[in-house]
């Protein structure tokens, strides 16, 4: 039962990613990305990673989608004629993406990947909170530095020039 659920979720994950890329309207792409993130969240729950799953749902499905939708709203709206032209151009370059995905799936299914490798010893500590605060605290420093870098980057990009 769990295996069937996993297979359905994985198919939804791949189909969501392909639909995100194939659809003509950018807004639909942003919604498709949110859907793919939501499916990934369920997959992460299935793989015993609830904390990362909550992060994925709130940040990637929520915040990133909001950022993309805001950006799409701030750019130019396409007219009906432009949409028809864009659809033709997109179909010309993206029509064989599903074929590539299906072909890759068949090839990957046929290739025998050896999975009988020896697993390492179970870890002493497996609590994500303890690992983040005690073992990987340098990662937290890096995350804070990256966040500040991002803020600095956005401020620099949108800084008003004195000549304006």
């Amino acid at each position: 039962m769990v295996l069937i659920l996993n297979i359905i979720l994985l198919v939804l994950f791949v189909v969501g990613a392909v639909w995100t890329m194939m659809t003509t309207r950018l807004l639909h792409s942003a919604v498709g990305l949110a859907f793919t993130s939501a499916v990934l969240t369920v997959l992460m729950f299935q793989l015993d990673s609830p904390l990362a799953a909550v992060f994925e749902l709130s940040v990637c499905a929520g915040l990133v989608s909001a950022i993309f939708i805001s950006t799409i709203m701030l750019t130019k709206r396409v007219t009906a004629e432009e949409l028809i032209v864009q659809r033709k151009i997109r179909l010309a370059s993206f029509w064989f993406l599903p074929i590539v995905v299906v072909a890759a799936a068949i090839v990957l299914s046929l290739i025998h990947i050896p999975v009988d490798f020896k697993l390492p010893e179970p870890p002493v500590e497996n609590n994500v909170k303890n690992i983040m605060w005690n073992l990987r605290h340098l990662d937290l420093m890096g995350q804070i530095a990256i966040l500040l870098t991002g803020v600095f980057g956005v401020v620099t990009l949108f800084k008003e020039s004195k000549h304006d």
Partner: peptide, 23 residues
């Protein structure tokens, strides 16, 4: 069997992903 460490790395990846997208 190291879900704790994997989650810590995934959270770091998500943070970096958001900052990259914003910039």
């Amino acid at each position: 069997g190291r879900t704790g460490l994997a989650q810590a790395l995934a959270i770091t990846l998500i943070i970096i992903e958001v900052v990259v997208v914003v910039v």
